[in-house]
């Protein structure tokens, strides 16, 4: 496993906390994608991170800026993935997830999406869009896996 290269897509708050717990479980070459505005996340990760623009700034943003930021994140994700060429991209479900995951799929890189424990019955918007488009889509609760085709339940990380 040591020769594997894994990119973790983080976010803020709980998404980041779970991503870091997961990254500590495995001995591989680890890299992180973090939102540039989250100083806390950068401090927690310390090194090997790529700071990227988030598609949305919570509720304050207008739609045009969100589209622009999303496009930028697609390009930035393409650059990062071409440069890094990881074996696997893992996300704990933050708002950054869709662009790097779709780019990874395009490049034939494996992806693992891990939905937040806060989603018991319904997936998040990002999660829903990615059902069927990842190598693995894991829910934190059996309820969610029962309701959606392509969703697997293996247990929870918190």
């Amino acid at each position: 496993m040591v020769n594997l290269r894994v990119l973790f897509v983080l976010g803020s708050g709980g998404h980041t906390a779970r991503g870091i717990i997961l990254s500590n479980q495995i001995k591989v070459e680890k890299y992180f994608m973090v939102p540039w505005e989250s100083e806390v996340t950068k401090r927690k990760v310390g090194k090997n991170y790529f700071s990227v623009i988030s598609p949305r700034f919570r509720a304050k943003d207008n739609r045009f800026m969100t589209v622009l930021r999303t496009l930028f994140l697609f390009l930035h994700s393409l650059m990062i993935l071409l440069y890094l060429h990881p074996n696997i991209v893992i996300s704990t479900g933050s708002g950054l997830t869709i662009p790097p995951f779709l780019v990874a799929r395009f490049l034939g890189i494996k992806t693992i999406y891990i939905e937040s424990p806060s989603r018991v019955y319904y997936p998040s918007l990002a999660g829903k869009m990615l059902i069927g488009k990842t190598s693995m889509w894991l829910s934190s609760w059996p309820e969610l896996a029962e309701r959606y085709e392509g969703v697997e339940y293996r247990g929870m990380i918190f």
Partner: peptide, 17 residues
């Protein structure tokens, strides 16, 4: 008491698949 999973095992499975 939730069931917890091991990322290492999941990755092994994914690489093997």
């Amino acid at each position: 008491k939730p069931k917890q999973f091991s990322l290492g095992e999941i990755i092994k499975e994914l690489i093997a698949s």
